[in-house]
Design a protein around this nucleic acid. Structure first.
Lengths: 126, 126
DNA sequence: CAGTATCCTATCGGATACTG
DNA sequence: CAGTATCCGATAGGATACTG
């Protein structure tokens, strides 16, 4: 039986999500999560609430623009909550949602796997 | 005690890898693994050996150029082995190394986590 | 079959300046 | 403090044609 992984479901039908399939929406989400800064934001938020500038300091090399954009996208996907306290100066807090904690765990596991094998990897690649 | 996550180790010294640190080499590798096609190649190779054109068909939407490039990078990092059989027409096989299987498992777990929550996610985001 | 080479575009992402 | 707006360069990535 041939694979149907590349066949998009007809409108209205529901197939099990398959990230190898070009049109599966999971791929868009996966790209958000695995984006250059998305990965690091999720990891940085794993130990609890953080403010914008805390995250900015914590995640080496991220620009304000990219941090804001990444937070917005991950919030839209339901991985992050944004809480703005109406005070001056502004005070905004970011947290992982329960679902966000799930994906953050997976992302973190991946990062740790790479970190713990770094020796072997760098030896292999130069 | 302030965080030192953003401080790069002096030349010759060895610090525990920290992906939140700008100069940590793990970040480069993580970017390869979480690249648009890197993720999908690792997943597609999880069930064993595959040839170039098999992968191309399996991974919806990938171009020859991007597949070749992604395979080369992941091979350099030591996640994939490339075996060329000297016959005409050419016959080349790709496999995961043991280390590649480890990261592929993590990547796959992440993808499955997203797939199984797709309903909630799409509802949240529109 | 398994790529490379070339060309081109779109998106990513950085720097800077500005705002409520 | 927590962003937005604008501009710009780098690079990821697609289409096509070609090769051993």
């Amino acid at each position: 039986m041939p694979s149907t992984a590349h066949i998009a479901p007809p409108a209205g039908a529901e197939y099990p999500p398959d990230v190898l399939s070009e049109r599966c929406p999971s791929r868009r989400i996966l790209n958000h999560v695995t984006s250059r800064w998305g990965v690091l934001v999720l990891i940085a938020l794993q130990d609890g609430t953080h403010r914008f500038s805390e995250l900015r300091r914590r995640i080496g090399g991220v620009s304000e623009r990219m941090l804001a954009q990444t937070l917005r996208v991950l919030e839209e996907d339901g991985f992050i909550t944004r809480t703005a306290h109406p005070v001056v100066p502004p005070h905004v807090e970011y947290d992982l949602t329960p679902m966000g904690q799930l994906v953050a765990q997976k992302v973190h596991a991946l990062a740790e796997c790479i970190e713990s094998n770094l020796g072997r990897i760098l030896k292999a690649g130069g």
